[in-house]
Design a protein around this nucleic acid. Structure first.
Length: 775
DNA sequence: ATTTTACAAATTTTT
DNA sequence: TTTGTAAAAT
């Protein structure tokens, strides 16, 4: 167990003050890399250890569940693990889902309510639109979803919606006058399915606290100390929940950085930070401005960029770290080329400098960009892990099995029922489903209820079909009787076998089919793991119900697979928030991609994109690479690009610009790879287009980039320096002066062993080393 | 009722 | 390129 004094001694004065200020309202403005997690962790340890606060009375809201787990682990090392385990710690969604499982009956929800993800949500919305006979060309699912979500984040229920002419006018203007009807029907549908969507978790928590004073009092009493991380990304609902909970003891500490606010699109409200001082009397504000993460170059570049934003709190992030290298900027021909470039740099650093793969992250604006990166990494056999995108639990076959699980735990879950009532095929088709839907709507009960009482209801469904429905019901009922008697794994594998899903998948011998089968095995493995873990805990819940509660809010970023220990990380910049890596690549620095096309017309949106870029840059500890391409595949078509406006917003002194129309990274090897695959077309397109592009007057590349393009030829010469011999003195851009002591390999793989004056002996691939001869 | 085929539409970002 | 939906065929 580490001593508290030792720990406090590790903190700088500002950090230490923030840790020791335990009472009242605290706001910590924490610049990127300023050790904010450290402060939060030690603050909790300090509360427990020095102030004798019971961990049970501490609530800490983090950005990911993984972050919560890791903090708990570190706190456990200081105060003891049996103590730390009682902390209330996790994301807003997981902590409040937990409370709603306990208290939800007060709102009419069962404790085993289902959590609908966006796919479920979209399906409910679609069904409702269809049932209301609305034109789906006008009522686009995505738009309706977004709209409903924004209502909920603003704590507006259907009832309130109809009292707010303003909102109705907005929808009228958007040619969606019946949006309120959809909203109402959607909510009713979810409610009678015993289901909440992500936004409901917050909205319902708010409703619970607002209309059940005794429950509010209970949790106010319990949470004597509250901490909120990433406060800049909380929305109105979250803000009010926290405010309500803190109302009694008033010990609340929020940590955030307005420069890293990147979730306005989902309702996050930057004003929460600004209002904080108004809401609480005598707010103590601490600023953490010393960056411990990145080099001077990276911090300087990020600062120069974020200065372009008009709306921001004043803050001066600085660092004592080394100057480090400039940020590399590279222009590539295509997205394929970009992938090859990144893969090649990673490979080089891995081989020559022995950097483990986990030191690298590739960050992009949109998930679609991962493909080119994956292809390139796979070709070089570089292990990688993708975060986000289509996560494991969203795959079709996994969701199918989960739908059976869901139905077993909560048979009212209509989306689960719709998904599998005829999968595998049982002869229950659209006509039957329509009639069941009508009956459910008329009686206002769940579809499960209708199916169960089908014989006694005046529903026009013929006998044979009724029998098929009732067979299905019987099957699910039989699973339900096993819920309490069997652990999650026994029941799950029983369901997988007897539902016919495994059999159906087994018949498919295509590679994709085999893969799907393996995914189901993997799912069952994770059920097994869950059941085993839970039976070890004294008050564990080894049943399937517990498993379903557990996975609903687990995201990709929360998983911690030991197999993923040494892999390159690929993720969107949004997902990278809070993480750090020695070497970071930010790819696709192009207009219309980053900043996204959707944002360039509004200053507020554009500033959010700029903050996003700020977040991306500040993930890097030692080195950052920015890349953009001349053309890339979008919508299956080649599209010409211009460099991102953000590139010229970075102060030039921090950049090492390698931009030329000649791309040294499309070597013979890549031509081969390209002509092998399905992307023959681009290759042809390049050769035809290249001369054109260089003459085109429309090429609006930023001025400073264009100017340095001239120098690029010069840069190119460094690449070619392979005709060196032992004994020669050379200069390396990073390692400085050195003498060649040995040579090995031939042609493109020729390597030199060089004794550098300052950094010792290194073995470098000549084609990458950018050596300069000293004569 | 289910499978096949053809054609259009679509891309921000996430709990 | 992929994904989803609608019409057509079995």
């Amino acid at each position: 167990m580490d001593s508290m004094q030792d720990i406090l001694a590790q903190l700088n004065p500002a950090q230490r003050e923030a840790v020791e200020a335990t009472e009242g309202a605290i706001m910590v403005i924490a610049g990127a890399g300023s050790g904010k997690t450290r402060v939060l962790t030690y603050r909790i340890a300090y509360l427990i250890h020095q102030k004798g606060v019971d961990p049970f009375n501490i609530l800490s809201l983090t950005f990911t569940n993984k972050a919560a787990r890791e903090m708990k682990e570190r706190i456990g090392k200081i105060v003891g693990h049996s103590e730390a385990k009682n902390l209330w710690m996790g994301t807003f969604h997981s902590v409040f889902a937990r409370i709603l499982r306990i208290e939800g009956d007060k709102l009419g929800y069962p404790s085993n309510f289902t959590i609908y993800d966006s796919e479920d949500q979209a399906k409910v919305v679609n069904n409702v639109i269809k049932e209301l006979n609305l034109d789906k060309e006008i009522y686009k699912t995505r738009n309706v979803q977004r709209r409903i979500s924004s209502f909920k984040n603003g704590l507006i229920t259907p009832k309130e919606y109809f009292n707010l002419p303003e909102l109705q006018e907005q929808d009228n203007a958007a040619r969606m006058p019946l949006l309120g009807e959809i909203f109402k029907a959607y909510n009713e549908r979810c409610f009678r399915s015993g289901a909440m969507d992500f936004d409901d978790i917050l909205l319902n928590t708010y409703m619970l606290l607002r209309y059940h004073p005794e429950t509010l009092a209970k949790y106010q009493d319990r949470f004597r100390y509250i901490m909120v991380d990433e406060y800049q990304d909380t929305n109105h609902a979250q803000y009010l929940i926290v405010k309500a909970l803190a109302n009694r003891h008033g010990n609340i500490c929020v940590v955030g950085d307005d420069a890293q606010s990147i979730y306005a699109f989902r309702g996050a409200n930057i004003k929460n930070i600004l209002n904080y001082q108004r809401d609480y009397e005598e707010v103590q504000v601490y600023k953490l401005e010393q960056n411990y993460r990145s080099t001077k170059n990276i911090v300087g570049a990020a600062n120069s960029l974020i200065k372009k934003n008009r709306d921001q709190l004043h803050k001066e992030v600085w660092t004592q770290n080394d100057t480090g290298e400039q940020i590399y900027l590279h222009k590539l021909v295509s997205d394929n080329d970009e992938g090859n470039f990144v893969a090649r740099i990673i490979w080089e650093k891995h081989m020559d400098r022995h950097l483990p793969f986990r030191d690298f992250a590739i960050l992009y604006r949109t998930n679609a960009q991962s493909r080119a990166m994956e292809d390139a990494l796979r070709r070089k056999n570089i292990p990688y892990r993708i975060y986000g995108g289509l996560s494991f639990y969203q795959r079709k076959e996994v969701k199918d099995v989960l739908a059976y699980f869901r139905l077993t735990v909560n048979p009212n879950d209509e989306e689960a029922l719709r998904r599998v009532i005829n999968y595998p095929a049982r002869g229950i088709g659209n006509t039957t489903m329509e009639r069941l839907t009508v009956a459910a709507n008329e009686l206002g009960v769940s579809m499960w209820e209708i199916c169960k009482r089908l014989p006694e209801l005046p529903v026009n469904i013929n006998r044979p079909t009724q029998a098929k429905v009732s067979d299905f019901i019987t099957k699910i009922e039989s699973y339900r009787t096993m819920l309490d008697k069997h652990d999650a794994f026994d029941l799950a594998s029983h369901i997988a076998k007897t539902s016919g899903l495994i059999r159906t998948l087994n018949e498919d011998k295509t590679p994709e089919g085999v893969n799907r089968y393996e995914n189901i095995q993997e799912l069952l493995n994770s059920v097994k793991e869950y059941a085993e873990n839970q039976s070890e805990i004294e008050d564990g819940k080894p049943g399937l119900g517990g498993f379903m509660e557990d996975i609903a809010l687990i995201t990709d970023a929360d998983k911690d697979d030991p197999n993923d220990r040494d892999k390159v990380s690929l993720m969107t910049i949004h997902l990278a928030k809070g993480l750090e890596f020695p070497v970071v690549f930010v790819v696709g620095m192009e207009e219309n991609l980053f900043p996204s096309m959707m944002t360039v017309n509004s200053r507020a949106d554009l500033e959010e994109e700029r903050r996003l870029f700020y977040v991306a840059l500040t993930r890097a500890e030692k080195e950052a690479y920015l890349t953009y391409t001349q053309m890339r595949y979008r919508w299956g078509k080649l599209v010409d690009n211009e460099p991102s406006r953000f590139l010229e917003e970075i102060d030039e002194q921090y950049l090492n610009i390698n931009v030329s129309d000649f791309s040294p990274f499309t070597g013979p090897e890549d031509v081969l790879a390209a002509s092998n695959g399905y992307r023959k077309a681009p290759q042809a397109a390049f050769t035809r287009r290249k001369p054109q592009t260089s003459q085109r007057p429309v090429n609006r590349a930023p001025k400073n980039l264009k100017r340095v393009e001239q120098n690029a030829q010069h840069e190119g010469n460094f690449e070619a320096l392979t005709d060196v011999s032992i004994g020669e003195r050379v200069k390396h851009p990073r390692f400085g002066f050195g003498k060649i002591t040995d040579l090995e390999g031939n042609g493109p793989n020729k390597k030199a062993v060089i004794a550098f004056e300052n950094v010792g002996e290194k073995k470098l691939l000549l084609k990458f080393a950018k050596l300069e001869k000293l004569s």
